[in-house]
Design a protein around this nucleic acid. Structure first.
Lengths: 248, 248
DNA sequence: AAATCGTTGATTGTTGACAATGCACCATCC
DNA sequence: GGATGGTGCATTGTCAACAATCAACGATTT
């Protein structure tokens, strides 16, 4: 069952269809994708207002598909909205950071429990491969890519489980994580993970003791929380919605 | 700004605002609520097609708000859609059942770990109170209410954590659970949980040993999985999309 | 008879215009 | 001067019509 190891990830999420689907991409999905990229890429900072008509002109679509794309991003936690008032990129908060990492600890622990007895040769080599890719991007100084490869590294565990609901939950967290990391990167420049940040993680993941892995995950997330939280406190965003059209 | 003062209307979900918000409910939210109720209540069975124009006439709204409501239910996992083809109530599958309960095991365990040291008198009494409410609905033979009180019972744990992201995740699972339980109820009639089904659960929750609680959760979910799965197998849904306008 | 291909009806995707709402500013009043 | 109430404008919510797409049906061909 060589599942989910070498997934080039062509289409989106055909939540159940086993048949091959070649869905003509709808404008809604295209807009959602581009807008997501714009937010995660930092083009639109957290707290910034998202005016529908402005975005519809920017993406050259009508407000209909745009609004549906916004709904999608809202559910992903990247966007918040207040009825009849406005839509904004989700603001950053230390509370969110703690929640993201604590929940991620629970999920990743659960994921490892699921796959612990199924870690085959393919999984181990792929884990090492992705770590190498991560190190490569770090050495290259490409922060954007570093974020992606970092997430892809941890994503392997979720893919291995074959647990669609778990993967779905992970994707929800992943978007939020990207939001924080992108902001961190934008504020401090070169400040990604260290080259050896996954050494003990990999050692535990390839080892025999599940308890060690659990402890490693806890420690890994503790460090992540600390780093991200410190960044947030260092740069008081004060992203409260003040005037109508500010950018924070 | 003395506008909209006479709106006693209870608000929806102010996902973050600490300020008092009295948002006039939008059609989108109203439709989403009614459609959700229709699906969970069994008026529209799993696998049934959701034709936009028919629903828009049924709820007396345009297709715009209806589509946005559909997007919302899609993200909740109650509805699936195939571009340019059709939208359907999410079909049932044994795989989903396993995933729902296994993920729920992880989440509820995590929740108890969070609140374990904070279980005050209020929490304990509220837990007992909700169990009493559950038993009352069971004795009354009200299956619909039984589902709600059952979910409210477990929901207390998530509420206690104050972990918004965890609660959000729980809500995502809760909708799917309701879908299965509603179908179960519709197929077999009076077949809710037993009166004493939470006795050991409460005992463990009020006790001192977290390990006991963990084991209790695992066992509780194991029973839930077994029951739901057996129901699904007993009634082969065969919810494959066959013809264009079938109801499965 | 079996397979292929065009046709047809239904459904979703998209658009632009109109209505409802809320915030900010400014004049007014105490 | 500070608070209060009115007004304008930007923005979101909603609607009805149009275009694109798909699946099923039937005619046609081999």
């Amino acid at each position: 069952m060589g599942r989910g190891v070498t997934v080039p990830d062509a289409n989106c999420d055909p939540s159940l269809s086993a048949l091959e689907r070649i869905p003509r991409s709808t404008l809604r999905d295209q807009v959602a994708e581009r807008l997501r990229a714009a937010i995660l890429g930092g083009d639109i900072p957290p707290g910034a207002p998202l005016v529908e008509i402005a975005l519809s002109e920017r993406f050259d679509v009508s407000r209909g598909p745009l609004r549906e794309a916004l709904r999608q991003l809202i559910e992903e936690g990247l966007v918040v909205t207040v009825p009849y008032t406005g839509t904004y990129v989700a603001p950053l908060s230390v509370e969110d950071v703690r929640e993201i990492y604590s929940l991620r600890t629970a999920l990743e622990t659960f994921a490892f429990e699921l796959i612990w007895d199924r870690r085959d040769r393919q999984f181990r080599s792929e884990l090492v491969r992705r770590n190498a890719a991560l190190i490569a991007t770090i050495d290259a100084g490409d922060d954007r890519a570093s974020i992606d490869t970092e997430l892809a590294f941890h994503g392997l565990v979720y893919e291995m489980t074959g647990h669609r609901l778990l993967q779905r939950t992970w994707h929800g967290l992943r978007g939020r994580l990207q939001l924080y990391w992108a902001a961190h990167h934008r504020a401090h420049g070169r400040r990604g993970p260290r080259r050896d940040s996954h050494d003990s993680y990999i050692a535990a993941a390839l080892g025999d003791d599940l308890a060690v892995m659990r402890a490693e995950i806890v420690e890994h997330m503790r460090r992540g929380t600390e780093t991200t939280e410190r960044f947030l406190r260092s740069r008081p965003p004060v992203l409260g919605k003040s005037k109508r059209g500010d950018i924070t």
